[in-house]
Structures are given as C-alpha cells and as structure tokens.
Amino acid sequence: MIPESLKKTLEARVASAITAREAAVDVMKELQAHYGWLTDEAVGEAASLLGLSPLQVEELATFYEMIYRRPVGKKVIHVCDSISCWCVDCEGIIEHLKKKLGVGLGETTADGMFTLLPCCCMGMCGDGPAMSVGDVPYGKLTPELVDEILEMERQKA
C-alpha cells in the first residue's frame, strides 16, 4: 500500500500526461523508490493508476533496465559489457567487482548494500570501462578505482 500523498502525486502526474502510458516510467520509478523495487503489489498499483492491465505494466517494467522486478540492494551497480568497454577489458573489471563484492552477476551482497548487474552500452564508450552505482556514472575504471568508488559509495549510503 502506498501512502495517500504519494498516490495523489502520481495521480496528478498521470493526469498531466497526454496518454497514460507516457507517465508509466515516472510512476514505476516513484513506486520503486517507495518499495525499494517494483513489487507485484506495485505493478498492480501502477496498473490502476495508469488504467492499464498488470500485464501491460509488466511489459514496460521488464523492458527497462533500471526498473527492478526483484529485490535489489541499496545501490545497484550497472557495469557495461558492450563492445567498446569489452575492447578495454570490461571483463577484468567485472571479475574484479565479483571478487571484491563476493557475488555473481545478478546477486546482492550479504549486507544488502550492492546488487551487481551487467548492462548495455551506457553512452560512455570514450571513457570505458564504465559503470554506474546508484545514479552516478563512473568511467576509465581500474581495479583500484573500483575499490575506491565502492568504499566511497558505502560511506555515502
């Protein structure tokens, strides 16, 4: 259940859109921020706010990389494995992240801090290997830099 205030805000967001679908991403992101991930309950709530069926919300939710339909840690790491980053050894970075965090791709650290996910090109090809942690993008990664970033992000949290 979402609080009445959030519901009001979202209703207003939907009302201001030309078609309800156009507001879907915003609605899903807000609900995700509220629940930590887009729960089944949140899919149902998004559906009734948007006048869509749960399936139609699911279609959109599962299309976008940053909508999480499973529980995730406090911060999600998206590490690029597309071609430009692959040319500058993103594989090494991914291995390092896995070892450092003690998780495989798609998994969450035991303390619930980080979830590690591979992702498609994020438009930082010139600065590869690249990743983002939460909302913050990082480029020109080295194992040392990764350690620093993780430490810093842990502090910030």
């Binding site: 899919v43 869509l52 069926s53 749960p54 399936l55 139609q56 699911e58 279609e59 599962t62 299309f63 990389e65």
Partner: peptide, 19 residues
C-alpha cells in the same frame, strides 16, 4: 485483449501473461 502480451527485452523477450 489486455491480459496477454510481450515482456522482457533482447534475448529474454517473452510472450505470455502476467501470471
């Protein structure tokens, strides 16, 4: 119909229902 559609993206595209 609204209860059947396409979910996922790329290699995970799936045609089915929500549940």
């Amino acid at each position: 119909g609204t209860d059947f559609g396409v979910t996922g993206s790329a290699g995970r595209v799936y045609f089915g229902r929500f549940k």
